[in-house]
Design a binder for these strands. Structure first.
Lengths: 248, 248
DNA sequence: TTAATAGTGTCTGTGAGACAGTATTGG
DNA sequence: CCAATACTGTCTCACAGACACTATTAA
């Protein structure tokens, strides 16, 4: 029997439970976010963070975890599998103010995903399900210039995602590597730092800190090199040492 | 018409939404947490973090905010009004793994409250509603010695609360002041730091940092003194400058 | 050689840790 | 005076910011 054909009755009213997934990557030295264009009301036609309602069961099987729901909804709306690339995932915050969704009380648990781009090209995405379109946007442009109309309180969620990144980037050494190619050069990692902070980072001071992380065994040199258009000395390649990055 | 006499039917199954409030204070140089003894199954007789289900309405009124629900549930279970003392409140994390509650799918948004104790005496608490008893416990003893059986995943929640505090205490100057009397002495604030970190802090280095915060205008000297049993030079009193503590 | 990119060395200031010293009270 | 508590000064080291320098490649 299809559980979605029956109705579900409770003693007390319950809110809807949603999850949203803020997917970020660094592309051409800019922090970019994956948004979908809503195909249904409310906020039809507005851009939104991909997400949707958590699948819950009433019986002994209690359904999917919140993180799994966020991954699934992203896949359904953008055809992008965030788990495939070994992306970094963390819970961001839970938004539950009364009135944030005109349809009724909706609590949304927001997640943050950081994408490793293998070549510098963003993953191909396309709309699906409730999403008419899916596209990458510059996070800073969306937040600072506000030319985009975002659905619900999604501007607030994006602002918190950027704050979280800025707050952690300097204290969690391995974090930036989740937004860099694998393996990465020192400069590629620096570009990630610059994209997040929105300010240029001194090459030499960054290199100094980078060397400390090498000494501490967080990163290690590895084979390979980058082919660059304008020539110049080829960079060394590095990768994160597995299970050596605390927190991250 | 009493909304709690009617039943509530939805197209898709919905989880229950709960809030939990981790209430912390520093008493006799120890970090203490307020727990309640459960009066009903599941986990009847076990100690738990005060909390309960969020009141939601189906109509246009969408009910109370998550934070308000946490404050209300705390009041109902312990007769303690966390807003009265101007306590610091922040969202901690949302726990929603399937199976964390045997009754069915329950998502719980945990909040963290930091209490200013005016005199060093903890607020009087007593059981109420679903709670048979309410009592203060040493957080470190509960977490490290594990002699207490905690309901649900509440040990995990407490562990995260301690981690959050330890992570923020050194980078958010005004945070410790939320756990100190008002006004406070330099030593009282240092004791808060020691309770959180679980390690003694050098008096002189702490004083150095304290002076910097004074220079930066985060704290200010004020009138008053402390009467101490064993005599000695009386300490100066300080307080937080309102709206000068970023993040708080 | 030049241009371009990669990587190192040096100076300076700030703040943490360790620890010795001074100040102000009661008895 | 002494004991007890409150507060200050000094030395060292680690690290960030600024900036000058050397290294390795392609054309």
């Amino acid at each position: 029997m299809d559980p979605y054909l029956q109705r579900h009755t409770y003693r007390y009213p319950r809110p809807s439970l949603a999850v949203d997934m803020v997917v970020l990557c660094v592309h051409e030295a800019r922090l970019e976010v994956l948004l979908v264009k809503r195909g249904e009301p409310p906020f039809e036609g507005a851009w939104a963070i991909p997400g949707g309602f958590v699948h819950v069961a009433d019986g002994r099987d209690q359904g999917e975890s919140l993180e799994a729901a966020a991954v699934r909804e992203l896949q359904e709306e953008t055809h992008f599998d965030v788990r495939a690339g070994g992306a970094y995932l963390e819970q961001l915050y839970t938004f539950g103010e009364p009135g944030r969704d005109p349809r009724g009380r909706v609590i949304s648990v927001a997640y943050l995903a950081l994408l490793r781009l293998p070549t510098g090209a963003r993953p191909r995405v396309r709309g699906g399900d409730d999403a008419a379109e899916a596209m990458w946007f510059s996070l800073d442009e969306v937040l600072d210039q506000k030319r985009l109309v975002l659905a619900f309180d999604h501007a607030e969620i994006l602002a918190m995602a950027r704050e979280r990144l800025r707050g952690k980037i300097d204290w969690v050494p391995g974090l930036a590597a989740h937004l860099a190619p694998e393996p990465f050069t020192q400069n590629e990692l620096r570009v990630v730092h610059e994209a997040i902070k929105g300010a240029p980072q001194d090459r030499s001071n960054f290199a100094k800190r980078f060397r400390r992380y090498l000494d501490e065994g967080l990163f290690e040199a590895c084979e390979g090199t980058r082919v660059l258009p304008g020539a110049g000395r080829p960079p060394k390649m590095y990768r994160v040492v597995p299970d050596a990055t605390p927190g991250s």
